[in-house]
Design a protein around this nucleic acid. Structure first.
Length: 263
DNA sequence: ATGGTGGCGCGGCCA
């Protein structure tokens, strides 16, 4: 039976809640990882999410950041902090859903390569990578998804020359992401033929979406046991076309899960 | 054009 796992940076769940509820009703994902909810936990719209038929776990803060995992099946073993990394910013949320470990990341943006925020980004990625290295010792199905704020390769950038060595594209950021994939975590989008200039984020400014001046920075990574069962990964640009959209589009991966004994 | 737009929250930060 197919399983749909999705990620969406909503840039304020308060503003985007109607779009999220519509999207859940239409797409019926089994898991939806949200980033930039920008809500404290006491303001999380739990009742609306429950009414839509989803469980929710979340780790929020005011104004910035905030992550959540919505799921058809209940989530347990919830982890809200990057292990061994002191971080007041709510960017990490892990939970187990129906036997699958789900790691939802809102990776630090980094602002500029010479900034303190960039150093924080690299330190954050290193700490997350160490946690993933531990998880990858297990054969349990593992999906690592979210807003990575890194375009993996030049093919994920509308104008690679203009973006070279800038944040989201710098060598150190791509190297940090390569450490994730080096653990055996596969970028599921690239398991399949895709249109050229496929992006998941477009700046609000300069009519970037209309001109398709974007980057692919929202990713769904899967460990070997799960990647072997991946049947599709697509970017849904539909919500980006709506009135008052997020600057990110949802990304959806499908898996044809077979029984533990094999296909 | 070193800008542009959007969210939060009401001045300025962040993306």
């Amino acid at each position: 039976m197919p399983v749909k796992i999705a990620t969406w940076n909503v840039n304020s769940l308060k503003v985007r809640l109607p779009q999220v509820l519509d999207w859940l009703a239409t797409e019926e994902p089994d898991v939806l990882a949200l980033q930039e909810t920008k809500l404290t936990d006491d303001n999380f719209p739990e009742l609306d999410i429950q009414a839509a038929g989803y469980h929710a776990v979340y780790s929020g803060q005011k104004t910035y950041n905030g992550v959540a995992i919505l799921s058809r099946q209940p989530a347990d073993a919830v982890l809200r902090d990057v292990p061994d990394f002191d971080d007041p910013q709510r960017r990490f949320l892990a939970a187990t859903v129906a036997g699958m470990r789900v790691i939802n990341l809102y990776v630090v943006n980094g602002q500029a390569v010479d900034s303190d925020k960039y150093a924080y980004k690299l330190a954050w990625l290193k700490a997350v990578g160490e946690h993933l290295a531990n998880l990858c010792r297990s054969s349990m199905p593992l999906v690592v998804l979210g807003d990575f704020n890194i375009a993996p390769k030049d093919e994920d950038v509308h104008d690679p020359a203009a973006w070279r060595d800038r944040i989201l594209c710098s060598k150190a950021e791509r190297s940090a992401l390569a450490k994730f994939t080096g653990l055996g975590l596969t970028d599921t989008f690239r398991l399949f033929p895709q249109a050229e200039k496929s992006f998941s984020w477009w700046d609000y400014r300069a009519a970037a979406f209309r001109r398709n001046l974007g980057l692919r920075i929202d990713l769904i990574l899967a460990n070997p046991s799960l990647a072997a069962q991946c049947t599709a990964c697509v970017i849904d640009t539909g919500p980006r076309k709506l009135e008052r959209p997020s600057d990110h589009a949802p990304v959806v991966a499908e898996f044809e899960l077979w029984e533990r004994n094999g296909p």
